[in-house]
Design a protein around this nucleic acid. Structure first.
Lengths: 195, 195
DNA sequence: CACCTATTATTAGCAACTACTAATTGTAAG
DNA sequence: CTTACAATTAGTAGTTGCTAATAATAGGTG
């Protein structure tokens, strides 16, 4: 339980709590903060936070619409895009978990690292659609579940619709992977050719 | 509006409607089917379908967990091991789906194909733990969601704990990917070194 | 003390229910 | 035709988690 907070402080915390767990009812929040339900309601009102039910609906709709609507950049990359300069370079981070590892050893499966590198490389290419053509990968050190990977990609060369992107992945300053990927930017021709 | 359906027929349709749009209240359903709210409630009861609010919560919780996992799931990637001769060769199949593709073009993201190749390559190595060291990948043709990929891997050379595995992935008899992977079999030393 | 803010309490009302009981309609069989 | 039974509809009470509005109370500050 939480006590003796200034109104402002309390409202900040309520906001945090709700954003972490939108399923909290006013009653539960009141218990958590050891104040009355009415105060919670006033606070929500002042901050423009909707009631629990509406929040749940938002969560439900967000996620279902995400699936259908835009499948653009962020969702198509593995890991988190931190910084990007289209056509030049980019940085992405992936926090590794047990799910990505071999059960016995806890070593991250190589294709997760490749996926990070590949999707970063594709996303820095400034074009509608980009496809990987050729790649050379080199795994330097095993990565263990829990380590945070930082991938840096750079467009090394480009000629026409062909880009050479080099990606370096580090964990705790140490290089664990490098890759050179040849990526092609594509227009609708390829699509039609097959479809 | 819908009319004159047998009870069974109606219940089937209600089920469909709800699964398509979990946000439908009993009132709205009653209007859609032109029957009373009570009948809808009885139908839900008989079919064990929870009330709208609970359905929304389910959707919200589902999707929020999807967000966190986001990356790749084991089963999705690896495909199905069809045949394997440890230390020699192996075949795996992956049925591609929209989830694995770029939204706009329907082209399968390259790392799914690599994941298939890589995990097959690793699984034909007859050892406790195997890790990918170096890889050369070549994507020959774009693969579209829905196509079924057949991966064949062969141990081309092996020296000590070092294996060269070549993998060919075909879709409908046509080669879409080839890769050469250098894989190391590992014992506990590596683990200790880092852990 | 009066004034103000913050907090709490109280009441009425709503949506979308559950759970239960009762009435009505339909329909087939004796 | 009537009785029997299922299906449907209606109605009531109670629940959760609210909104909206009004009122009461507590704590300071000038």
């Amino acid at each position: 339980m939480i006590r003796n907070l200034s109104k402002l402080e309390r409202q900040k915390r309520i906001k945090e709590y709700i954003s972490k767990d939108p399923f909290l009812s006013d009653k539960k929040l009141a218990e958590l903060f050891n104040i009355s339900v009415q105060t919670i309601r006033l606070d929500r009102l002042e901050m423009g936070i909707p009631e629990m039910r509406k929040r749940i609906v938002q969560v439900a709709k967000n996620t279902s619409s995400k699936d259908k609507v835009k499948s653009l950049k962020k969702e198509e990359i593995i890991g988190e895009l931190i910084d990007i300069e289209l056509g030049k370079n980019g940085i992405a981070i992936l926090k590794t978990t047990k799910d990505m590892a071999f059960g016995r050893t806890g070593i991250i499966r190589s294709h997760y690292i490749f996926s990070l590198a590949d999707s970063l490389a594709i996303s820095i290419i400034d074009t509608e659609v980009a496809l990987t053509g050729i790649a050379r990968l080199s795994y330097k050190k095993p990565v263990y579940a829990g380590e945070t990977l930082v991938a840096k990609a750079r467009v090394a060369r480009s000629r026409g619709n062909k880009y050479l992107v080099s990606v370096h992945v580090k964990s705790d300053q140490k290089e664990v992977f490098t890759g050179k990927l040849v990526i092609f930017s594509i227009n609708d021709k390829v699509k039609k050719e097959k479809a």
